[in-house]
Design a protein around this nucleic acid. Structure first.
Lengths: 201, 201
DNA sequence: GCAATTTCGTACCGTTTCGTACATTTTTAA
DNA sequence: TTAAAAATGTACGAAACGGTACGAAATTGC
């Protein structure tokens, strides 16, 4: 591939990826408006001017965090849903994988960056667009998986199943933040998966 | 009853109820952290010191708004769910009544104050408590209604139906904020009501 | 070594924030 | 009419905010 073209001046010492990760964790714990640039500077270890140089202003840091969060979901959870095998198991595994993300380490429950924090910052067009994209993606993913599992299924039934599945996931975030245990939500996901499975059969 | 005991000094000219209403609208449009006391002063027409005297600090204004919002829901939407008649119709009417609240006037879509804005402010214990209370209330309400409609129903099935119904409502808020039309969500609510109705029969 | 180039953090700016002290206004009691 | 009592808004203070100018530091090309 292309060699690393050493640039002329002082080389960067900034790890953009780990900084983004830290910002994701902070934003989904406290939301957008409650996070200050000093907070972001603290958790990333980067000075405020460095943050501006690397990520632009606060809003674009948040957008960047949302996109990174989406990539994480796409990499770790979505494959569980698309896996071969019984639909009920795939759905249940997907829900559990999402709970792995929502609960992170046990200490605190950050929930979902998109479904949890974007709704209260949706006056910004870019944020609202990400929220819409997230919801649309989940809906489309569910619909595709259900159509695969039930090729001749009634379109109306598939749409109902799609909404039940997506709404379960969306509600996870609020429920996790409200204090529900991981185990409770895992159970809820399994129930939802079972109901959808029988609905489609 | 007791006569109005005219107090000694200058009488209040503050309408607490209409001020609370204005604060509800502002908070659910912009969330907690993004709202300043000057914003609250603007929408209520009250000076900042008056706000402090009447409602305490910003957090207690938000708590007060959440409680008032809960009362509004209990008065206007909950009776639809508890009404006699077919379960499917009661559920569907309840969802529509909640959408009346979530969409308010057509211009902007404020969504749900509790499910929409509380999750991103839940590091405050009082807020998290309200969020938990809201979710628990909806769950309990649904369970009670379903047990009434299906007295000998399997407990496991009732719990599943309860979660589908509650999650539909919780997801309404995020979906409304993401740009879904009222009509789309009304359709979704009707689908959900139908699925639950057949699940319980 | 020396100049050109790029990155980095200190230090600063103007604005906005929450919260309150205090003088003014309005009312009742005597 | 005058004093006490309660409510109200102006005006202020201290802190936090987002954002940036600018000099110091680090590297490459010559």
């Amino acid at each position: 591939m292309s060699e690393i073209k050493r640039k002329r001046g002082r080389p960067t010492s900034i790890d953009t990826h780990s900084a983004t990760e830290a910002m994701v964790e902070l934003f989904r714990a406290k939301g957008y408006a409650a996070v200050s640039l000093d907070d972001l500077s603290d958790v990333t270890g980067l000075s405020r001017p460095s943050l501006y140089r690397s990520f632009g202003n606060k809003l674009s840091m948040y957008i960047n965090a949302m996109d990174a969060f989406g990539v994480q979901v796409a990499k770790t959870a979505v494959p569980k849903l698309l896996a071969d095998g019984p639909l009920e198991e795939a759905l249940s595994d997907f829900f559990d994988a999402m709970l792995d993300i929502y609960y992170r380490d046990s200490e605190v429950t950050p929930g979902c960056l998109v479904f949890g924090t974007a709704p209260s910052s949706s006056d910004e067009a870019l944020v609202q667009a990400r929220l819409k994209f997230g919801i649309d993606q989940v809906d489309a993913l569910m619909r595709g998986r259900f159509e695969k599992a039930s090729p001749n299924g009634d379109e109306h039934v598939i749409e109902t199943a799609m909404h039940i599945a997506s709404n379960t996931l969306i509600a996870f975030s609020a429920r996790a933040k409200s204090g529900s245990s991981r185990h409770q939500l895992s159970r809820m996901g399994a129930q939802s998966a079972q109901a959808i499975s029988t609905l489609l059969s």
